[in-house]
Design a protein around this nucleic acid. Structure first.
Lengths: 207, 207
DNA sequence: ATTATAGGCTAATATTTATTAGCTGTCAAG
DNA sequence: CTTGACAGCTAATAAATATTAGCCTATAAT
């Protein structure tokens, strides 16, 4: 990997643990293996490095949501895939989303950085809200309302249902960001959560 | 209010918006209305101010959880109060907890500060987990399992049920920390959430 | 072969920052 | 009345920090 992106990478790691202001350019340079002034051959300021991270994440997120159609803009999702939805499929969706959020290194570090910087800059706060509240909720809401339309679930408010499905995932995600060693426990709870979610919302209540 | 606690107060406000490292002692002094060196008549270092905030919060939290018995240690909760639980009571409990977390000025600012500093210091991360994950979940779990024992709810895992009850509250809380203007929307969703929770989990499903 | 560029370095700089030293006025206790 | 502690101030200091200037080398282009 070239120096320019190694700088971005090292900075993201440091920013995600200590926050932008608590990290010095000398520290970043150290992590890259060069001296501080050399950074300025690649970025014109410390802030510029931060902006680089932001830009990089923007393109990654756009690419990701485009394939998942997870952004709010896309009006329809193919219903065919879900016509034969099973409990396992639901669990797969939940666990899949969870482990993607938690194990994709870039996503994970970027989320931590956003967490730290969210109150300092309104724009970053809005980005956090979009990525971890509004987009996932509207995505889940769309999917669940289609499943509801297929007659798989009871006829209840899909937005609230999406909240029921996603909020535990979100809580466990932020928990694992803080305490990664609790991931097994979180995964167990997550699976139980989805099973119970399915049990509770399914139309035919067989126990 | 005396200077010593005014310093704590101003510092908490600043730390909760920009984080410890991004705030200078001069900035704190400015907010208090004195000069920076005067701070050292009351605290021996910047870190000492931070510790003061921590200590203050510790006593407040202990006091609060003692009256609510919200800490994990207390084994029993009086069941009598809940024998005649209604939907309104559940809503009251949820909204009450939510607005307490969101409107108590000290609690709110301290939570934001913890949010910002949680990855920087493992001890603060553990404190966050305790205050906003483990304690609330075990508290809700205890209450809900008692309600379950009273035959009010279906016989399902109380831990997961607590997660279903609390996680949406948590998600909406962190949302309002970022975007306070969305509080009305959050309150509406929260109420719908609890109603649907009640509807879904109640033993006799009267639609 | 020469030249130019990219990317590293050291040394220097200007600013910010936390903290200390030491002075002054207020005010309560002896 | 005097004394001493408290709580403010200005000035000074030492360290850290972001950034600039200018030098050197390798390598790619002309």
């Amino acid at each position: 990997m070239n120096t320019k992106s190694r700088i971005l990478d090292a900075s993201l790691t440091l920013f995600s643990e200590k926050g932008y202001h608590a990290v010095s350019v000398a520290e970043i340079a150290d992590a890259v293996g060069i001296k501080a002034p050399s950074l300025y051959k690649h970025y014109k300021s410390k802030r510029d490095i931060f902006n680089g991270i932001l830009a990089e994440m923007q393109t990654r997120y756009d690419k990701q949501t485009a394939t998942l159609q997870m952004n709010g803009s896309n009006p329809t999702v193919d219903a065919g895939i879900f016509s034969s939805v099973s409990e396992d499929a639901l669990i797969q969706m939940g666990i899949g989303l969870f482990t993607y959020f938690l194990h994709d290194d870039y996503v994970c570090r970027f989320r931590k950085m956003l967490t730290i910087e969210q109150f300092h800059d309104a724009e970053l706060g809005a980005l956090y809200t979009k990525q971890y509240t509004d987009d996932p909720l509207s995505y889940q809401s769309r999917i669940l309302s289609m499943l509801g339309a297929c007659g798989l679930f009871r006829p209840v408010n899909a937005d609230v249902m999406a909240l029921h499905f996603y909020a535990p995932l979100y809580l466990l995600l932020t928990l694992c960001d803080r305490e990664p060693e609790r991931e097994p426990e979180a995964l167990r709870l997550l699976e139980q959560h989805i099973k119970q979610f399915n049990l509770i919302y399914k139309k035919e209540n067989t126990q």
